[in-house]
Design a protein around this nucleic acid. Structure first.
Length: 774
DNA sequence: AGTGCTAGGT
């Protein structure tokens, strides 16, 4: 039994749509030559009695249903099934129509599946398609080009019987896109040699791949050729030339061409504005917009998207609002291509409420619109809202893109949510939605900030060609985990690979030095930044250096640097000095530091705390009392200290002296097992966790357990002994708790990781990775 | 035919 002898009828007409494919149900009664077991019943043409009654309809073309099924498989991107089905059609001798081939080739192109494309092409040559039309040949050609096999494309092109202008466009553009401009131009001269007159498509196909400053000379030559060939007034070509010049950074050329265009529509204007905006000249783009409006050019949604981007670049809230009202007047604010950049504009101007309102007006928000909102929430620190959007998009099977995943990795970094971060990572891998570099760098940083430097390293190693940002992420990760030597080794490896460090890289390098007390090395990096790397130090670098000197007790050097650096010292500069003065008990410089700090910000709580400690540690109790009094008068309250730990995906938060946790009893009794001399606060200093009233000497008996210890104790009783206890806290670790963690790691044999506001501490066998230097 | 918005590292 073969299909081609079976009658066709109306089963597939619109009024009687086919039932959904029932793949398994159809696997029944086929015999002999062809095995049709995988064909849905509505394709195999065995019909029941009811169908034979519709005899009035003329039989459709033989093989029609099979070809429809083939096209349907290909449209669903089921190329594997399509190949199996093709073979069955072959065996049954069913003709495959050119339209089916066209559809299959298109799917191969879209999926970039060269192997399937080769298979289809082979089959076309072997089988029925003896004289393919020029159109179908072009489909094959385009398939090879899009699948990246220019060699095959060239062979097809050379052997084409029915070459048309489209064929030339396809192969020339493909060579240009792949960077083989010499081949494109070789073909252009072949073409001219054959007396074929190129159309505008030929030129625009080439011009769009010349948008690189190094190619501007070639672009100029092509431009002059275009003029000589008589196409100098073609709008499309001139627009493309204009785009090429502006994206090559040759603004005069672009303007010249633009001004000489007789007719220019919004596309030409938009292109030029894009060029200016990308080149960091948003003002010029906005000038063009004003001109455009005055000349009465019709404005479309694309115009507004780029204008809003320009406004966002300038963070010009006023101008943006004016344009917004213009958009509303034109009734364009519900259009997703206008609404989305509008949301982004308000986010960039840190006006989240307006962003929300703009978002609400979009009639059909796209994944890009949601992406902009996710960024907005992250920007105002509402990372949990970002995560909420992500989860609801995912649960509702809405479209997600690599931008969204990148933002979610960032949110997980900020929330230190390892579980969600790892889940999102797996999810993104499954959907092939990790952006090549952006996503990977965000992953490196996410894993590192979640305390998993091992995963961060793995994520980094999986990047084929890490760029400056990716290297910086892994260097910074090692720096914060206290692996200074590894950080510096990576810094050298980066340079060996020819990747240039930038300002941020040096922040990471100095951070590594700072956390390990590498004063000399830091000084060398600082000195070589400008001379050797051409990177000018910013105040952040100077502050790092001040911090390094101060921690090392080189307070005079720190002070000299503050006075001599080419920036006005900011709060951080003085705070670094003051911190060092406390640790190294230098009253004189400490008072200078505190005076300057409190002059810059009289409300800086940390400044008072440091000064209090400085006085207390040098026995100046009267002065210390004065500081405390000032704090009370100013009603300065410290940020509430808290520590948290994730157990089985649930976050357990503790504050100082917390007794709210359901397992409070077990937690406190666990703590009592450990040495009482390691209770906190024994030295009477004010720590980050303490309320001022608890820490005064006369009150020192009133001990309150720090949040960090509560979290550690809870970790001990609720996690398996072979796993590290990972604690996060919002403030810096206090010295006593640090000692306590060392002690705990020693007697319990557990690995303990504590991330405080500055860095990670890895405790093992009574030692900390920071070597007590932090 | 030629055009747009969203993302990484301190």
């Amino acid at each position: 039994m073969s299909w081609i002898h079976v009658q066709h009828h109306m089963a597939l007409s619109p009024s009687n749509p086919p039932p959904p494919p029932r793949l398994a149900a159809a696997a029944t009664t086929n015999s002999k030559s062809a095995n049709f077991s995988q064909i849905p019943s509505w394709v195999s043409l065995k019909r029941t009695s009811s169908s034979s009654s519709v005899k009035t309809t003329p039989p459709l073309q033989q093989g029609r249903v099979e070809n429809l099924h083939l096209v349907s498989l290909s449209k669903q991107a089921k190329l594997k099934e399509a190949r199996v089905f093709l073979e069955q059609m072959d065996e049954a001798g069913v003709y495959v129509t050119p339209h089916s081939y066209e559809s299959l080739l298109e799917t191969c192109r879209n999926l970039r599946s060269l192997s399937d494309g080769i298979y289809i092409h082979d089959r076309m040559r072997r089988r029925t398609v003896k004289n393919p039309s020029g159109f179908l040949e072009n489909c094959v050609l385009r398939m090879y080009c899009d699948c990246g096999s220019l060699v095959d494309a060239q062979t097809v092109f050379d052997e084409m019987a029915d070459r048309n202008l489209g064929s030339w466009v396809v192969i020339m553009s493909a060579y240009a896109e792949a960077g083989f401009l010499d081949q494109s131009f070789r073909l252009l001269s072949d073409m001219l040699g054959l007396g074929i007159k190129p159309t505008s498509m030929i030129y625009t196909g080439l011009l769009k791949y010349l948008v690189n400053p190094s190619l501007v000379e070639i672009g100029r030559q092509l431009h002059s050729h275009v003029i000589r060939s008589g196409l100098g007034s073609n709008v499309a070509i001139n627009t493309a030339i204009c785009n090429m010049y502006v994206k090559c950074g040759w603004f005069e050329g672009a303007k010249l061409v633009f001004d000489q265009m007789d007719e220019k529509d919004s596309v030409a204007w938009t292109g030029l504005m894009v060029g200016y905006t990308q080149a960091g000249k948003p003002e010029d783009a906005l000038d063009l917009f004003v001109k455009m409006v005055m000349e009465g050019v019709e404005l479309d949604q694309y115009v507004f998207s780029i204008v809003l981007k320009a406004c966002a670049g300038l963070e010009d809230l006023n101008l943006g609002r004016q344009i917004h009202s213009y958009i509303v007047k034109l009734g364009l604010e519900t259009d997703v291509s206008v609404g989305t950049p509008l949301v982004d504009f308000y986010v960039k101007c840190v006006n989240f409420e307006s962003a929300c309102r703009a978002f609400e007006r979009i009639s059909e928000p796209s994944d890009v619109s949601w992406s902009a909102m996710i960024c907005g929430y992250s920007q105002i620190g509402k990372f949990d809202e970002s995560v909420k959007i992500f989860k609801s998009l995912r649960n509702n099977s809405l479209i997600l893109n690599s931008f969204i995943y990148t933002s979610i990795f960032q949110a997980c970094s900020a929330l230190a949510d390892f579980n969600l971060g790892a889940q999102a990572h797996a999810d993104a891998v499954k959907r092939s939605l990790i952006s090549h570099l952006y996503g990977h760098s965000a992953l490196v940083s996410m894993y590192s900030k979640c305390g998993r430097l091992d995963y961060a390293t793995q994520a980094f190693e999986s990047i084929a060609a890490p760029d400056t940002v990716a290297w910086t992420a892994i260097i910074s990760g090692n720096a914060h985990h206290g692996n200074a030597s590894e950080a510096l080794r990576l810094f050298r490896r980066m340079q060996d690979r020819g990747v240039r460090p930038n300002v941020v890289t040096f922040v990471a390098v100095l951070t590594a030095c700072s956390h390990s007390g590498l004063v000399v090395e830091a000084k060398n990096y600082m000195d070589s930044m400008h001379s050797q790397y051409g990177v000018d130090p910013t105040i952040d670098h100077y502050n790092s250096m001040i911090d390094i000197y101060s921690r090392a007790g080189l307070l005079q050097e720190a002070f000299e640097l503050i006075k001599s650096m080419p920036f006005d010292p900011d709060k951080t500069s003085w705070k670094c000095l003051l911190g060092g003065c406390w640790t190294h008990k230098n009253l004189e410089l400490g008072e200078i530091g505190a005076a300057n700090l409190l002059q810059l910000d009289p409300e800086d709580t940390a400044g008072y705390v440091l000064l209090f400690n400085l006085y207390a540690s040098t026995g100046k109790w009267e002065e210390a009392a004065g500081v405390r009094k000032t704090m009370t008068e100013k009603n300065l309250k410290k940020e509430l200290s808290c520590s948290w730990i994730t157990v089985k995906g649930k976050v357990h938060r503790f504050i100082v002296g917390d007794k709210h946790h359901p397992q409070t009893k077990e937690i406190y009794s666990k703590l009592e097992e450990f040495d009482q001399t390691l209770m906190n606060n024994e030295n009477g200093l004010l720590t980050e966790e303490d309320d001022v009233s608890y820490t005064f000497p006369e009150r020192k008996q009133q001990l309150v357990v720090h949040s960090e210890r509560l979290a550690m104790a809870f970790g001990l009783i609720s996690t398996p002994t072979n796993t590290p206890i990972i604690i996060f806290k919002n403030l810096r670790a206090c010295k006593d708790c640090h000692e306590f963690a060392k002690h705990l790691s020693d007697i319990t044999g557990r690995r303990i990781v504590v991330r405080d506001a500055c860095r990670f501490h890895h405790f093992q066998s009574g030692q900390c990775s920071c070597n007590d230097y932090w």
